[in-house]
């Protein structure tokens, strides 16, 4: 079954998008992303002043994998999990925390912001996003059609990318 990891569409998505922008504004962080635990990016924002981010696919994959590995470590010690992860380099820091059990909120910041500030506003953002998700639960999901046209189109794309020899 095709299901979104989080119900991020319509008004809910707009609210969450605005919350990510607000997080960047208040925390002075560079980038904010919501990713699912498989490593797919669900939403992202960049501060206007921030440089172009690195590949978001790579970032999401690595953070999700890191989170999974940390979860396995936590279980070795009888913990349910480590709810947040902090990575700090000379210039860049990354703060990740659980969101709605199915996703992570990642905030990437530099020396122009302090970790404490990032943590404070990230936690507030998580709470606000969870409220938005809860309020948007009954929002009807967009309908997608996977009819013969869709099948033919995807087959054509596969042939184009991989060749049409059988």
């Amino acid at each position: 079954m095709l299901e979104p990891s989080l119900a991020l569409y319509g008004e809910t998505f707009d609210k969450v998008d605005a919350l990510l922008q607000d997080l960047l504004s208040k925390s002075h962080a560079r980038y904010a992303l919501i990713i699912d635990l498989k490593g797919f990016v669900l939403a992202h924002q960049k501060a206007l002043w921030a440089p172009k981010p690195p590949s978001l696919d790579s970032l999401a994959t690595l953070v999700a994998s890191n989170y999974s590995a940390n979860l396995a470590i936590a279980k070795l010690f009888g913990e349910g999990g480590f709810k947040e992860m902090v990575q700090q380099g000379d210039d860049i820091g990354l703060y990740a925390q659980e969101l709605a059990e199915k996703a992570l909120l990642i905030t990437v910041f530099d020396n122009s912001s302090a970790l404490g500030r990032v943590k404070l506003f990230s936690k507030k953002a998580v709470e606000a996003i969870q409220v938005a998700l809860s309020e948007g639960k009954n929002e009807p999901a967009p309908v997608m059609s996977f009819d013969d046209d869709w099948r033919d189109s995807t087959q054509a794309l596969l042939d184009g990318l991989f060749g049409s020899e059988k």
Partner: peptide, 15 residues
């Protein structure tokens, strides 16, 4: 399970 991102209009699969 495939992931759909309606906002970004993406369907993602993991192989």
């Amino acid at each position: 399970m495939s992931t759909i991102n309606f906002a970004a209009r993406e369907i993602n699969f993991k192989i």
